[in-house]
Simulated scan of single mutants.
Amino acid sequence: MTVSDANLPWTSSEWRERNDSVWQRTLRLQQSWWRQTRTGMAAGPSTGGTRLVSSMLPVGTEWSPNLMTPAAVASARRARLDLETERRPGIIQIDRLHRNLLSSQPLCFNLFGHLSAEPSTLLEWVRTFHHDAESVDCVRLEWAPLTGNTGGSAFDAFVTYTRSGGARGFLGIECKYAENLTKAQPRPAPEKFKVETVNGPWREGAETRLDRPSLRQFWYNQLLTQRVAAGDFTSGIGVVVACHDDNPARRAVEAVRTELDDPSSLRFSSINDVIDAVPGHERWRRAFTERYLTYDQIPARLAQDNEPPGRQSADPAHVHRS
């Protein structure tokens, strides 16, 4: 079914995407609800296409409202400039940042990008990985080392910190939201990744067991973590940040963890774990939570919007927590 009316209500079944999983459909509805009720904007076409998608903003939309704060916008501009001037691996997809409400890249800038101007706000969260962390030194977005990156990939966010005694640590972060991990990396792993795994801190045979579509991305990200940790850092931890209820991501992280000699070097952290640890920033916290984390309210919103006029009640105040 092709939608021809960009102002069709977010509740319409005509917006349904045939290949969405139940999880993806829920989050697409969440972002469609946010687009219509909080921005008042019509739906836009897919990237490079003409087909209208309920979780896309109109062509011509720039940094805001998909990036929700000036700090998030500033971090995106800075990351894009850094990629151009430093020539590091990484990809900033401008149309995705401007218009794709469902993508994890704008989510990452709305979360870690917003906080990057004040790295100290992440200290309590960092201490959940290393309790002796004394300061957070830097937060970079879409970052990778200039050399030694055999995969050409980058961390979605890269948080460096100092531990007691002066030891330096980092978190190499991969953000997920609505992605289908079973389709994330469909091609078999390049031989270089298998060789690196055989020669690295992995269990025997891990290179074969990890060579699956749902596991490759987190496997590759952990290889990048290990490369960076072998440089100027005392310790490095790979972290997958996703919704509390993203069970496929949790299972994939656990599957990769079990193949590591040190499973504690890869962790899952819910988005709520991050925002709950941040002091202050109350306005940002409320807006971010409402946009991304109140997906459990979708059934009530659908029911409310389908009630006859005059019988609708106020939107529930409940906010999903981890």
Rank of each mutant, 00 (worst) to 15 (best):
M1S: 14
A6V: 00
R18N: 07
S21E: 08
S21C: 04
W23H: 13
R25S: 10
T26A: 06
S32M: 04
R35V: 06
T37R: 15
T39E: 02
A42L: 11
G44F: 06
P45Q: 08
S55G: 03
P58C: 00
V59S: 14
E62Y: 10
E62A: 14
W63G: 05
S64T: 14
M68K: 06
R77I: 09
R88Y: 00
I94W: 09
H114Q: 08
H114C: 04
S116Y: 03
A117F: 04
P119T: 02
L122F: 03
L123I: 04
A144T: 01
T147Q: 08
T147G: 11
F155H: 07
A157P: 00
T162D: 08
S164D: 11
R168Q: 13
L171G: 08
E174G: 01
C175Y: 11
Y177S: 02
E179M: 13
P190D: 02
T197C: 08
A206N: 06
E207A: 13
E207V: 10
T208C: 12
D211W: 00
R212Y: 03
N221V: 02
D232W: 00
T234C: 10
H244G: 09
D245K: 10
D246Y: 14
P248D: 07
P248I: 05
P248R: 05
A255Y: 00
L266Y: 10
R267E: 11
F268E: 06
S270L: 06
S270Y: 07
V278E: 08
P279M: 04
H281F: 09
E282Y: 10
F288W: 06
Y295C: 08
Y295Q: 14
Q304S: 13
D305T: 10
H318R: 13
V319L: 13
V319T: 15
